[in-house]
């Protein structure tokens, strides 16, 4: 028996390496100045899926929602061993909070149809909310296991996984299909050189059209032929608009998002009065004296 595993991933700005240039004078983030990367814990989710593929046999489908160039994380997934990819991209998805995002992903999962497991990274480093996984599980009426470290066993009826809890761990068993969110507990494999050579040519329809834009042979028949060729070689990245995903446009993007951002400020954490202390014995003695005098110490 072979399993079908969907992994939902996100392309994120590299918030761990925010430099001065990434902050605009008004305190908002200049996303364009930050490199876009594969969300780290989504790589852990993909790794777990690929391990399950190695252990039990599975088809791994990777999906993402994002702008057209988020196809890059899907190619990254193909380099590592994913079998199929799907990109949800549409202006109608823009500005989505976690509720609207989980709704859009639920449409994508329904479109894919039959699956045994959905894996997501626990959280994305741009928002750190950890909400989309559980919300997606609810939308699809699936049981959820959060904070998964590893899968102990998988059979056609159930999955058993070890997951982190505060100060320890649990081993939980869930019937299939189920959704799991995965934490940073495995070492994601690097892209395989041979797969990289092969799949760097993988394209979405938008990319195919852009490649042939301006050429005078861009008739529908030619594009159709190219598309069939790419499909045959498994180099086709499925692209779905909101309508194609069967989404209700009232529930996607900004429109489908109950939460609104009122204000954004850059972090300025300021102490009160600042006093410089010399690193000498006298300096440190006087500091100690002050701390003991005001009952902070002693």
């Amino acid at each position: 028996m072979s399993y079908t595993i969907i992994v939902f991933v996100k392309q994120v700005p590299d918030t761990k390496n925010v430099t001065g240039e990434a902050m605009k004078p008004d305190g908002t983030v200049n996303r364009a100045a930050l490199p876009a990367i594969f969300n780290p814990e989504d790589l852990n989710a993909l790794e777990l899926a690929l391990q399950l593929k190695d252990r039990f046999g599975a088809k791994v489908i990777v999906g993402t929602m994002g702008p057209p160039n988020a196809s890059e994380v899907l190619r990254q997934s193909l380099y590592r061993g994913a079998d199929e990819t799907v990109l949800l991209t549409d202006r109608a998805f823009a500005g989505a909070d976690t509720l609207a995002t989980s709704y859009a992903l639920s449409c994508c999962a329904k479109k894919i149809g039959k699956f045994d497991l959905i894996l997501c990274g626990r959280q994305a480093i741009d928002g750190d909310t950890a909400q989309v996984g559980p919300q997606l599980a609810e939308k699809l009426n699936l049981p959820q296991i959060s904070y998964v470290e590893e899968v102990i066993s998988l059979d056609k009826n159930k999955v058993r996984a070890k997951r982190a809890i505060e100060g320890g761990f649990e081993i939980l068993e869930s019937p299939l299909p189920a959704l799991m969110t995965v934490i940073d507990a495995n070492d994601p494999r690097p892209p395989a050189a041979s797969r990289l050579m092969r799949f760097k040519k993988a394209k979405t329809k938008t990319e195919l059209l852009a490649q042939h834009a301006g050429a005078n042979y861009t008739d529908a028949e030619f594009i159709e032929g190219e598309m069939q060729e790419l499909k045959k070689k498994s180099l086709w990245i499925n692209e779905l608009s909101a309508t194609e995903a069967g989404a209700d446009l009232e529930r996607t993007g900004l429109k489908g998002s109950p939460t609104k951002v009122k204000q954004i400020m850059s972090v300025i954490l300021k102490g009160g009065t600042f006093k410089k202390i010399e690193p000498t014995e006298e300096g440190i003695n006087s500091l100690m004296h002050e701390l003991i005098e005001d009952h902070t110490l002693g």
């Binding site: 909070d97 909310t129 950890a130 909400q131 959060s146 809890i165 939460t259």
Partner: peptide, 23 residues
């Protein structure tokens, strides 16, 4: 915003179709 709160809150918010802000 504990492990429990962060797996339970989103499930509840999603059912009620209401907003949830994390952390």
């Amino acid at each position: 915003a504990t492990h429990k709160g962060r797996e339970l809150g989103p499930r509840v918010a999603s059912t009620l179709l209401c907003g949830l802000t994390a952390d």
